[in-house]
Each structure stands twice: as C-alpha cells, then as structure tokens.
Design a binder for these strands. Structure first.
Length: 293
DNA sequence: GAGGCGTGGAC
DNA sequence: TGTCCAAGCCT
C-alpha cells in the first residue's frame, strides 16, 4: 500500500462484523463447492443460487461425480439459473479436473484459467477464497467500489481490467488472511452497501475515505453503456423456451413440437440450430434431447 | 472489443 | 409491460 488512502483496515474490520452468513463462507466448504458457487454466481443473484448450489453439491459432491453423468444432466439440474452454457462448461470442468488434476480443483490461477468457463474473475476468486492465495479479485462490485472510493466517480465506466487489478493489488494487505478478507469485503461492500442504485453511504465503513463522497457525489459523465436489448420476443427468449421444454422431457422431443408450433416458427428454428451448435441440445433419430455426451 | 448469452426482481 | 441490474465469459 503506497497510495494516499488505505482502504484495507476499515474494510477488513467491517467484513469481520458485517459479512452475511453464506454457504461458501462456512468453515470446511470445499474447493469444488467454491468453484460451483462461482459458476452459479456469474450474473445470477445470491438468493437464487443458494438452494440450487446445495442441491447440486448433495448430488455431485466431487468433480468425478459430476463427470460421471452426461452433460445433459448438468443442464437439466441447472434449472432456471440462466445462461445454461455455464452448466455445460461446469460439466467440462468436472471432466478435466477428474481426468487431469486427480479430482482436485487446481489452485494455480493459470491452471484455473485453462478450464472452460473460468475467466479472470473466477480463477482469482477460487485461488483466493478456496485456497487462501494472495491475489487481487475484481468483480462488478469491486469495480464500482474502487471507482467511487479511489477514483471519485459514480460508475467505473468501460472495463479497465489492468487498472482495477493494479488498484486492488496496491491495497491488498500482506497477511493472506487479511488479503482474503479484503477481497471478500470489497465485494460484500459493493453488494450490500455501495450498491449500483441508492448506495447506503450512512452505513459505509470507508465513507470518510471516499473520493466520490468528498467530491460531492458528482454524476457519472463517461461513456454510456450499451442498452440491453429487449428480451421479449428475442432469440434468447426463444432459446430459453426450447431448453425449458427439453429439461422437462424424459424422452426425445419431436422437432416440429419445438419449432412449427412456436409463436414464431422461423425464429424457433434459428434458436434450435443455435442450441445444437452450442452443444446445449442434440438431434437424434427419435427427436431432440439434452446433450448425451 | 462490442455483442450475445437467461432469468427474475426492484423500481 | 419499460429499464436496469445481478460474484462473467467467449468470440
């Protein structure tokens, strides 16, 4: 820590008091459980993840257990968490870990990055939280907290990965336990206090260090982010509808049922072809099924 | 590097 | 019955 402001002591202290009691923070929670939780938490809120995660780990307590079933079973168990390609990638992770890592989740960031569906955030989160390694962890919460406290702006703006990793590295305490608490604390602060809308600055442990507050809460003036396309009527919705039908099926589903009878048959046909290309569905002589392997 | 990728809840 | 947001990743 060489900069003018040191966030770590207040964050670490606050986290020790304010941290939510979440499954992946329980003592003895496995590295595999951490990896599964991080996959599920990619763009899906905590409250929706928790029950799915517990069911998942009860059914597949180690990577080899998941690797032993067809990928379609993972897609089915994924349910309505969204972005089902994550289920496919997680299954592929399980196969790789079982076959190449002795059924043990790797702890080196580079080994983790080599796994399907594991990017810069997830790799560092697993190394830091499951194994206690001292790496900076940057997710959407951390990006926002850094933007406000350090940069003095309301919004982090376009991704600036190197900048944010450097800022976190600069603030990261030396003791591993404190480094882990700082990473988790920055994420927790962004999740429950320094929120995107209506931040609760009166409850913030670093309010008196915050550059955004000191500047009088200026509005964000940087580039506006791209608006999310309408979901209603989109190809994504069509994909979701087909996959929901496949998840509930115990036998192959007739292709006509998935496309010709859809609200927009042409769109449904495109969506099905995309799902087949993505490996989220398979075409057999009997009909369409979830991937069998 | 911009766009695509599910789903549900809060306003 | 609109917009934004949620512990990202891949192409």
């Amino acid at each position: 820590m060489t900069g003018p402001v040191d966030l770590a002591p207040a964050i670490v202290d606050w986290f020790s008091r304010a941290a939510r009691d979440l499954p992946w923070r329980r003592p003895g929670f496995s590295a595999w459980g951490t990896l599964v939780s991080e996959f599920m938490l990619q763009q899906t809120p905590v409250v929706r993840v928790i029950p799915q995660l517990l069911d998942w780990l009860e059914r597949w307590p180690t990577p080899a257990d998941l690797a032993a079933v067809p990928p379609g079973e993972a897609v089915r168990a994924w349910g309505r968490l969204g972005y089902p390609r994550r289920a496919l990638a997680l299954h592929a992770c399980a196969v790789a870990i079982a076959e190449q890592h002795g059924n043990r989740v790797p702890e080196d960031v580079d080994d983790l990055l080599a796994l399907p569906g594991v990017g810069p955030y997830t790799a560092r989160a697993v190394a830091a939280f499951a194994y206690g390694h001292r790496h900076p962890v940057v997710d959407t919460n951390v990006r926002r907290v850094l933007a406000r406290t350090v940069l003095g702006q309301a919004d982090p703006g376009p991704p600036a990965t190197r900048r944010d990793l450097a800022l976190m590295a600069e603030h990261l305490p030396l003791p591993r336990a404190d480094a882990r608490a700082f990473n988790a604390g920055m994420m927790e602060l962004g999740a429950i206090v320094c929120t995107a809308r209506a931040p609760r600055c009166d409850e913030c442990p670093v309010a008196d260090l915050c550059a955004w507050r000191a500047a009088g809460y200026p509005d964000y003036t940087g580039p506006q982010r791209v608006r999310q396309k309408r979901y209603e009527g989109s190809d994504r919705e069509a994909r979701g509808r087909i996959l929901a039908r496949l998840r509930s099926a115990t036998i192959p589903v007739d292709e006509e049922l998935l496309t010709a009878e859809a609200p927009d048959p042409e769109q449904a046909g495109r969506a099905l072809e995309a799902l087949l290309a993505d490996g989220l569905a398979e075409r057999t002589s009997e009909g369409i099924i979830l991937p069998a392997g």
